[in-house]
Simulated assay, not measured.
Amino acid sequence: MKTINKWMSASLVAALLLTGCTNEQPPAPSAQSATSPSSQPADAPQQPGASPAAATQAAIPAAVDKPLKIALVSEFSIGTFSAQYLQGVKEQVSKFGGELVVYNADGDLGKMAAHLDTAINQKVDGILINHGRAEALQPGVERAVKAGIPVVAFDNDLDQVEGVTVIDQDDYSLAWQGLKNLAQSIDGKGNIVYIWVGGFAPMEKRNRVYEIFLKRYPNIKEIARFGSATPNTALDTQAQMDAILKKFPNKGDIAAVWAPWDEFAKGATRAIKAAGRTEIKVFGIDLSDEDLQLIQEPNSPWKASAATDPADIGRVQSRFLYQKIAGEHTPKYFSLDPHLVSQDKLPDQPVNMSDLTQYVSGWGRSDAAISPWMAALEAKHK
């Protein structure tokens, strides 16, 4: 596009440094550094995975060679992304012969902290944390670590607790991929609607990139902002977006919608289609089978979403936890690589998440947090 300069990622990194944000993650370690078992010598070559032959010969550590009780403490379970993430956790824990106990706080941080205390008091073998904030969870997490219960957290700010591994989807890259695509699609100018809610670690990170984006593209103007996280987020967003469309009724009033959560994108897409305003383009973050159906509908305004496989997130998080239980070193931070899934790159026939490896370069199962003994453990419980 004529108005888009070719520098992108470098300017983003520089701008992030200049913003002076605190509590930022250092660069994520490579998949290789996340997979080395403690049983290897320090100078042994690191490998992201193990061949089937090597895996079957690897001794299963005694700490994981028994049925383990794993707790998953979630802030919420809204939408299909959360459902597919949970499925990934269940799948991996089951393959390792473990028992998964799920605690859902329904968006209540106080309830989430109480669930964490319950899991600790029940002396579970390991704890997975899904979202939440350190202000509510840090005392409980510190108590778990002190009690010798390993903890791996996803999408939160618990990085101040020593011994906890925090994984995420690399929210800065997710946001920049989607926003860059939005800017290119509207030639770097036009009015946009921003659907966002604060109070969640990944949302706060994505918003930092959005603020830089507005400075990078001064001809793109935000004309409306709304958003809330509720048990019916997609429906509530649809109603709110419908009100925005009535406030800006003319073609050209709105060029695009930035929705950095797929529940927001679903609601906006449905409102735009119902109003016959499909000239408005929607760009989002996160992806599920339901989202893919909406993106592939005829005349769908949802043009692209930056995402990682939610089920794969659950599998990787679970593997890190088992590595911790086995006494292996795990990184303090780990970010899964996101991908941009564009409507124009998908085939005419409907596809689901498992099909995306054929159409999105790099999409697929992560080989992070794989130790040589894991295949043997899975085979034992097959």
Results as ranks from 00 to 15, higher is better:
Lys66Thr: 01
Ile70Pro: 02
Leu72Pro: 04
Val73Asp: 02
Ser74Ala: 14
Ser77Cys: 07
Ser77Phe: 10
Ser77Val: 01
Ile78Phe: 13
Ile78Cys: 08
Gly79Asn: 08
Gln84Ala: 13
Gln87Ser: 14
Gln87Glu: 09
Val89Glu: 05
Val89Phe: 06
Val89Asp: 01
Lys90Trp: 02
Lys90Leu: 06
Glu91Asp: 09
Gln92Arg: 14
Val93Gly: 08
Lys95Tyr: 00
Gly98Asp: 00
Gly98Trp: 01
Glu99Asp: 08
Val101Trp: 04
Val102Trp: 12
Gly107Thr: 00
Gly107Tyr: 05
Leu109Cys: 01
Leu109Met: 05
Gly110Thr: 07
Lys111Gly: 05
Lys111Val: 00
Lys111Met: 05
Met112Pro: 01
Ala114His: 06
His115Gln: 07
Leu116Val: 01
Leu116Asp: 00
Asp117Lys: 15
Thr118Leu: 15
Gln122Asn: 13
Asp125Trp: 02
Leu128Lys: 06
Ile129Asn: 07
His131Gln: 11
Gly132Ala: 09
Arg133Trp: 00
Ala134Gln: 09
Glu135Gly: 14
Ala136Thr: 06
Gln138Ser: 15
Gly140Val: 03
Val141Gln: 08
Arg143Glu: 01
Ala144Pro: 09
Ala144Tyr: 02
Ile149Asp: 08
Ile149Leu: 07
Pro150Ser: 03
Val152Asn: 08
Val152Phe: 10
Asn156Tyr: 12
Asn156Trp: 09
Asp157Trp: 04
Val161Thr: 11
Gly163Arg: 10
Val164Leu: 10
Val164Gln: 11
Ile167Lys: 12
Ile167Ala: 11
Ile167Asp: 02
Asp170Pro: 04
Gly178Met: 11
